[in-house]
Nucleic acid binder design. Structure first.
Length: 571
DNA sequence: GCCGTTTTCGGCCCGACTGTTTTCAGTCG
């Protein structure tokens, strides 16, 4: 049973408790425990076996005991009892937007509805409006939102949401009645995937902003429109929320809407202890309601003796405690990046020549790239034969003679086969500047097999970097199972770097794993896996995830100059 | 159900919008 499986069960328990109208704090407790497991960088089975469950935040005696039962026996009595009490379909009903536990119970008790299908049928037959407290509008929304749920894709990729949001922000800022505008929510925190796009603006004429927003060219539907808050559907099918506040409330509103929810709740708790109250309208003395500030985010944080956290850190995963202890990292920035260690050319499955890639790299201000075309065993990706690699080495050598302040490193992206072996013989590998390796197939092996396979590659003295270490593809393929603590320990000992692959549908390693890797002493390479020269720009998203993983310049090997990098390589 | 430089009991963030209501419950973030 994986962390994700267990987290899912905990969140189902929370849903069940909600339907059963249990104490809301118990519900919150289960949700929190689920979210902690969701981002736990180690295997919950190991944590349980070592008796460390209660060391995890949000997991106390009760949940720990129930988790142990679940992990040992594969079953949890409590969960099964709850399921007995709730008709199965009700869990599905509350996934419909706008339909919560109360309404689900109401339609069940009045109409005996316990499935999405039955609900849709009843709505179409106008039976919903006959129930007291529900009306025609509810009926309409049920039909609409079931349709929406059916066609709704997964969360949008950061790299898709970001440009959409920036374009809207740019338009808003041009309007004379808009004082300021910014992204908020998970987008501002730069999560790998985004639910709805959240935006914030400040203005002295909020209704003008709402009118303008609802009329923008890309709007296909206005779902809600109030004086200060509207939700529209973008032509790309995405929901965009815009909230407007007055200019002197902008900071507190931005803090609040950036979240994360857990981060803000933590802040409000601290404020409360200090006799203060935080809302999106400002920070106040609790007793007198006297407003102490809120025009800028600093007004909020400084009253709590906290710095203005980079949005990427605002997850309530220890950043607040670290700030009080003076232990906040100085996060890496895009301009720290000096080169890209994972790019492909048309010799394998890329689109452009080495020269094209070099030219783009120079535009980005880089001083090196490493050409890592696929190797001979990965035939589907046009892997280079020994002879072709020899030619590549020769050509790049020639190219480097012509270059002054730029260095092209010769590398390869080897394929780690099912037994942990890689392409080419070691004498050829030794002639390469920087060698990467990754797993491209055999994802269904057991955790033990996959771990051993990767360990063999890590311990191979010719290999410097493991690419896209978990092979996760967002919205498409889950990460394979790997014993990450063991992997990270070996990587640190052998000075084998781990990749943060910047490709928008990978962003692998993810932030929680990066933090664990850093803690274990592993060095990271933020590279793009570019298959054409425009892909080199994806480093922007890689750096964002690195920041979410608390990485500093010193943790990332491609912030180093080429000499220091090559010294690291000779392990 | 969790948690603790006020506490092992008594707290637990706060507000907008919709739809159905004549003052508010439900849902969402």
């Amino acid at each position: 049973m994986t962390n994700k499986d267990v987290a899912y069960i905990l969140s189902q328990i929370a849903d069940l408790l909600e339907i059963l109208q249990e104490s809301r704090f118990r519900i919150i407790a289960y949700r929190k425990a689920a979210s902690v497991l969701e981002s736990l960088p180690e295997d919950i089975n190991d944590v349980s076996e070592q008796g460390r469950l209660q060391e995890l935040p949000g997991i106390g005696a009760h949940i720990a005991e129930r988790l142990e039962e679940l992990l040992k026996t594969g079953r949890m009595k409590y969960f099964e009892e709850l399921k007995q009490k709730v008709p199965g379909g009700l869990l599905e009903l509350i996934k419909i937007r706008g339909l919560g536990p109360k309404t689900a119970v109401t339609v069940y008790e009045n109409l005996g509805i316990a499935s999405v299908g039955q609900l849709e049928k009843a709505a179409k037959e106008h039976k919903i409006r006959e129930v007291k407290g529900l009306g025609a509008k509810v009926e309409e929304n049920i039909i609409k939102n079931i349709k929406e749920m059916e066609k709704r894709e997964e969360r949008i990729l950061l790299a898709e949401a970001y440009p959409i949001a920036q374009e809207i922000i740019k338009e808003l800022r041009k309007q004379p009645f808009v004082v300021s505008a910014e992204t908020a929510g998970s987008l501002r925190r730069m999560r790998r995937t985004i639910g709805d796009i959240d935006l914030l603006a400040s203005s002295n004429e909020p209704e003008k902003v709402m009118d303008f927003f609802a009329m923008m060219s890309f709007v296909v539907e206005v779902e809600a429109k109030g004086k200060t808050k509207s939700t529209i559907t973008h032509q790309d099918g995405r929901k965009v929320d815009l909230r407007v506040v007055s200019p002197d409330q902008y900071g507190s509103a931005l803090q609040y809407f950036t979240g994360s929810k857990q981060h803000s709740i933590h802040l409000r708790g601290i404020a409360k202890d200090k006799g203060l109250k935080i809302s999106e309208y400002g920070i106040f003395e609790a007793a007198t309601e006297k407003r102490l500030g809120g025009k800028i985010e600093e007004d909020i944080y400084s009253k709590l003796n906290l710095p203005v956290f980079p949005p990427e850190l605002r997850e309530d995963k220890g950043e607040i405690e670290a700030a009080y202890e003076g232990d906040l990292p100085k996060l890496i920035t895009l301009k720290d990046i000096k080169g890209d260690l994972h790019v492909h050319t048309k010799k394998s499955d890329g689109l452009n020549s080495v020269e094209d890639m070099v030219s783009k790299a120079k535009q980005l201000g880089y001083s090196y790239i490493c050409v890592s075309d696929h190797a001979k065993n990965l035939k589907v990706a046009g892997g280079l034969t020994v002879k072709e690699l020899e030619t590549q080495i020769k050509n790049i050598k020639e190219l480097n003679k012509r270059e002054k302040n730029f260095r092209v490193l010769v590398g390869a992206e080897l394929n780690i086969d099912n037994d942990g072996n890689v392409d080419y013989d070691s004498s050829l590998l030794a002639r390469l500047d920087f060698v990467s390796a990754s797993i491209h197939a055999g994802f269904n092996q057991s955790k033990k097999q996959l771990t051993e396979r990767m360990l063999k590659a890590i311990e191979n003295p010719n290999i410097n970097l493991i690419c896209h270490p978990t092979a996760e593809i967002l919205n498409q393929r889950p990460p394979y199972e790997l014993d990450l603590p063991v992997i990270f320990k070996a990587a640190a000992e052998t000075k084998t770097a781990m990749e943060l692959n910047s490709f928008p549908n990978r962003l692998d390693l993810r932030a929680d794993y990066l933090r664990a890797a850093k803690k274990a002493g592993v060095k990271i390479a933020i590279s793009t896996d570019a298959h054409n020269y425009n892909h080199l720009e994806y480093v922007f998203y890689g750096v964002a995830i690195a920041r979410r993983g608390w990485l500093e310049k010193k943790d990332v090997i491609n912030t180093w100059g080429v000499e220091k990098l090559l010294k690291f390589v000779k392990k």
